[in-house]
C-alpha cells in the first residue's frame, strides 16, 4: 500500500477512506520512518532470516542460496553431473537419513504414550490401536520404517562396495559407515523389546543369549544387557534408555560426521576418482580435496 494510493483516494470525491488507510495516514504524518518500517515488514522479516532470494536464477544467487543457508551449507554449491544419476547411488544413503528422520518424529510422538514398565507397556500398545488418534498408524510407521532403515543401510553399504567408493581417500568414512550399520541394528533391536509382547520378549531373550556366548566375559555382557538373569523390568528400562537417548545421540553424531566427511573427502565418488582417469588427465583432477598429500606437500 502506497501513499500515492491514499492521496488518489482522498482526491476522489465522495469516497470515504476506510479505517486502515486513515490509520496509515496518521502514522505517516506522525513518523514517516515508522510508516516505511510497517510497509516493508514482510520483506524485512524474510531478509532478517534468509538473505537470498527464494528462487535464485543467476549463478551468483544460486551459490548464495547455499552459502547463506544453515540447512544447505553441508552440501556443495556445485556438483558433478555424474553424482546426480539415480542409478549411481539409488539415493540409498539419503533414504536412510529420511527414514531416520521419520523414525525420530514418530518415535518422539510414541514416547508421549509409552511407559517403560512391564505392567503398563503392553497395555499402552493396546491403547495406541484403540484409543489414541492415529496411534496405530504412528506405531506402524515407526515399525516399518525401522525395518526399512536396516535394509537401506545395508543396501547402501553394498552400493558403496560395488562402486569402489570406499577406496582412498574415503577409507575412514567407510569405517564410520560400518559402525553406523551396527548402531542401526542395535537401535532396531533395542526397540524390538519395547511393545512387551511374546514376539518382543522371546526375540530379545534369544538375541541377548547370543551375546552370552562371548568367551570369558559372556556372563558379564549378558548381565549388563539384561540387568539380571532373565529379560525383565531392568532389561526393559535399559533397552528403553538405549533406544530413546543413548543410541539416537550416537547415531546422530556419527551421521553428521559421516556427511561432513563426504565433503572433506572430495565429494561423492565418481569415475574421476579412477586411477586410470587421473593418469590420463595428469595428477590431481582439481576436485578440491588434496588427498594425495604425500606427493604434493
Amino acid at each position: 500500500m502506497s501513499l500515492q494510493l491514499n492521496e488518489k483516494e482522498e482526491a476522489t470525491p465522495g469516497a470515504k477512506p476506510d479505517l486502515w488507510q486513515r490509520l496509515l495516514q496518521v502514522i505517516y504524518r506522525q513518523s514517516p520512518a515508522l510508516f516505511e518500517s510497517i510497509r516493508g515488514l514482510p520483506v524485512n522479516v524474510y531478509k532478517s532470516i534468509y538473505r537470498t532470494t527464494a528462487f535464485p536464477k543467476t549463478e551468483r544467487e544460486r551459490s548464495e542460496a547455499f552459502f547463506n543457508s544453515f540447512l544447505l551449507h553441508i552440501q556443495p554449491v556445485k556438483i558433478q553431473r555424474h553424482a546426480l544419476r539415480y542409478t549411481y547411488t539409488f539415493g540409498l544413503g539419503l533414504i536412510s537419513l529420511y527414514l531416520f528422520g521419520i523414525l525420530s518424529v514418530t518415535g518422539v510422538l510414541l514416547m508421549f504414550y509409552y511407559v517403560p514398565s512391564t505392567h503398563m507397556a503392553y497395555q499402552r500398545m493396546l491403547d495406541l490401536s484403540s484409543s489414541v488418534s492415529f496411534g496405530q498408524l504412528l506405531r506402524n510407521m515407526h515399525r516399518w520404517a525401522a525395518h526399512m532403515m536396516v535394509a537401506t543401510v545395508f543396501l547402501h553399504m553394498c552400493r558403496v562396495f560395488y562402486t569402489g567408493a570406499y577406496k582412498p581417500p574415503r577409507e575412514f568414512n567407510w569405517v564410520i559407515g560400518v559402525i553406523l550399520l551396527v548402531v542401526t541394528c542395535f537401535l532396531s533391536f533395542t526397540g524390538y523389546l519395547l511393545p512387551w509382547d511374546q514376539l518382543a520378549y522371546w526375540a530379545v531373550e534369544v538375541g541377548t543369549s547370543i551375546a552370552g556366548y562371548t568367551p570369558y566375559f559372556g556372563h558379564q555382557i549378558k548381565w549388563a544387557l539384561l540387568g539380571g538373569r532373565n529379560v525383565g523390568q531392568e532389561t526393559l528400562i535399559r533397552f528403553y534408555v538405549l533406544h530413546v537417548a543413548v543410541l539416537p545421540l550416537l547415531a546422530t553424531s556419527l551421521i553428521v560426521y559421516h556427511f561432513w566427511r563426504i565433503r572433506k573427502d572430495g565429494g561423492i565418488s565418481g569415475p574421476e576418482d579412477d586411477e586410470s582417469y587421473l593418469e590420463r588427465v595428469g595428477g590431481n583432477n582439481g576436485q578440491g580435496a588434496n588427498w594425495d598429500w604425500g606427493a604434493h606437500s
Binding site: R143, S188, F189, Y192, D197, Q198
Partner: peptide, 22 residues
C-alpha cells in the same frame, strides 16, 4: 505392526526367533 499376546516369561514361544537381521 505385529502385536502378539503380552509377554509371558513362563511360556516360551516355539521357536523363539531373533529379529530378522539377526
Amino acid at each position: 505392526a505385529p502385536l502378539e499376546a503380552m509377554a509371558n516369561p513362563a511360556h516360551p514361544t516355539n521357536p523363539a526367533k531373533a529379529p530378522w537381521y539377526f
